[in-house]
């Protein structure tokens, strides 16, 4: 009996774990501005323009957004302003970006 309950609990945890993994999305913040939440997979501050690449994974695949990061854009951890190189690979951030003719350009980055 106890073994059955333990097994049921284990299955319930597994199911809850599955349902909590939702598909990553890119939201349209305005007509040309988009917002995505994902983990930082790469930051390059050694070359101009600086760049950031985010990845949001789900069971079926991966959503990837890479954007250039210009000087003076808002990068915050909570309420504190930070530099791009203070973000860590693997950290979850929310990136707001614009799609321009020259590519994707970060507007703001918010680390949780």
């Amino acid at each position: 009996m106890m073994r059955t309950v333990l097994l049921s609990s284990f299955l319930l945890v597994m199911l809850l774990g599955d349902t909590s993994q939702t598909a990553p999305i890119v939201e349209a913040a305005s007509a040309n501005t988009h917002r995505v939440t994902g983990k930082v997979v790469a930051i390059n501050t050694s070359e101009q323009p600086h760049t950031i690449v985010l990845s949001a994974k789900s069971v079926s695949g991966e959503l990837i957004v890479g954007a250039t990061v210009g000087e003076g854009i808002a990068i915050r951890r909570g309420k504190k302003s930070i530099a791009l190189d203070q973000l860590r690979v693997g950290e979850t951030v929310q990136l707001t970006y614009e799609k321009t003719s020259s590519g994707l350009v970060a507007v703001s980055i918010l680390a949780s």
Partner: peptide, 12 residues
Amino acid sequence: SNRSDGSKVRMT
């Protein structure tokens, strides 16, 4: 590669 927002969806 999505033209509308520049995002990429990758699957194996």
